[in-house]
Design a protein around this nucleic acid. Sequence first.
DNA 1: CGCATCATACCGACCAGTCGGTATGTATCC
DNA 2: GGATACATACCGACTGGTCGGTATGATGCG
Lengths: 208, 208
Amino acid sequence: MNQSKSDSRTRLLDATLKVVRQKGYCAARVDDICAEAGLTKGGFFHHFKSKDDLALAAAEHWGEQVTTFFETAPFQALDDPYERLLAYVAFRKSLLEGEPHEYACFAGTIVQEAHETHPTLSEACARTMNAHAQTLEADIEAAARARGVSADARSLALHIQGAVQGALILAKANGAAAGAECFDHLRRYLELLFASPQQKHRTKRKRS
Amino acid sequence: MNQSKSDSRTRLLDATLKVVRQKGYCAARVDDICAEAGLTKGGFFHHFKSKDDLALAAAEHWGEQVTTFFETAPFQALDDPYERLLAYVAFRKSLLEGEPHEYACFAGTIVQEAHETHPTLSEACARTMNAHAQTLEADIEAAARARGVSADARSLALHIQGAVQGALILAKANGAAAGAECFDHLRRYLELLFASPQQKHRTKRKRS
DNA sequence: CGCATCATACCGACCAGTCGGTATGTATCC
DNA sequence: GGATACATACCGACTGGTCGGTATGATGCG
């Protein structure tokens, strides 16, 4: 009892993340997820009333996992916001190890695949992506202030997320090394943005 | 007669691109594609021996469409390689109009979704992505030479593709405007890269 | 007992792929 | 020309398997 809201339930959520990151949402069979979690369908439908319901809960679960994973990552120990931002990129680059499903983004995969077929699910995943992006904003703002450049923190944080998602796709397409090079470019962009005191850079461009 | 290799076949290929960009590969039913093409399943299996076979042919078709689409795009009229490169980014940004399935990338969608489940299909799509990226290399090299900076054209071209893919995901997640901002960042990166004559920038970083 | 947590067995819809058939050429030989 | 023979293109009913979901029962715990 207890184990805080049933152990099987979180095992199902973890299994969902794994299988969906491997095969995508549509191709992820309920039986696959059950097998991964060491359950049968009867047990599954005791915890979730449908596959979509499970996916929604898994999106929440993914968001929480990502949050704690990056909150407790070693690069957070750095003092300088700018260095911490670069270290974030380096850390994400270092995650490109092993099989694609180990570094793939659950949220990005689902947004890509299920945007039109499962709008609510896609939106839930979009929220986790945005929440994660938001964790970068404070450092971006602080770094910009410290270095005398102006930057739209929200826009830049989202761009970083976009670049990360793109790097993951490239890693799938051309191997982890190709994805890693994208992170190098992203780092260089940040370096150039924050290392030009002679001229203010506006990262946001509203329509005139 | 004939319409050169059967009109229905290309209609099926076009329908495949449309439906897959909407719903993803797994969720795209053969019947959906047939309905979109104005055929029945009997006719479909006369032209292709399986859904996977169709997808492979559609990947080729996508590659050809992309090639001619960008070859004949207005921005190609520009003379300066650097301006043409920036115009490419602006052009891609301008494509973020209408519904997501109108600007989504068939190849990117499939690489993301089918990397582990359909390796050959994923590789075919990866090839079209790489081929498209390669079309930027000449301009990158020329622009770098003209401006006295050193750049790994292949790496930068791939990064641009990655950034584009990421922008498309962000557009799905947060609306077209969010994707557009990513293209602004990408443009700024190129501007900063190519506008620093005082210092050589290395865009490629091999492990030591 | 009563409730929660599962397993087993099964249903029904859906869907990729098959198959028999038709309609329209088209090539060939008389 | 026209009759035979064959190819191409397509239809639509059907099948066999898959998969989300259900029904029911077993087990254990308080």
